[in-house]
């Protein structure tokens, strides 16, 4: 567990900033993965005539 009691307000703010950055990155990566899989599936279905 991270000990935060000795942290200054600046350190807490920096910790939150970093955590927010990591969370946005993770969201972007997971969203990107979903988008890639979706796009590949669409193209493959279109190529095999199963899309429409």
């Amino acid at each position: 567990m991270i000990e935060t009691q000795k942290w200054t307000p600046e350190m807490v703010a920096e910790f939150k900033r970093r955590r927010r950055g990591r969370n946005w990155l993770l969201l972007g990566v997971l969203g990107g993965f979903c988008l890639v899989i979706y796009a590949v599936a669409c193209v493959k279905l279109y190529q095999t005539g199963g899309m429409w």
Partner: peptide, 15 residues
Amino acid sequence: VNSVELGATAADWLA
């Protein structure tokens, strides 16, 4: 010490 305690940034993961 502070830099390590505060964890990685998004840039660290990309690095």
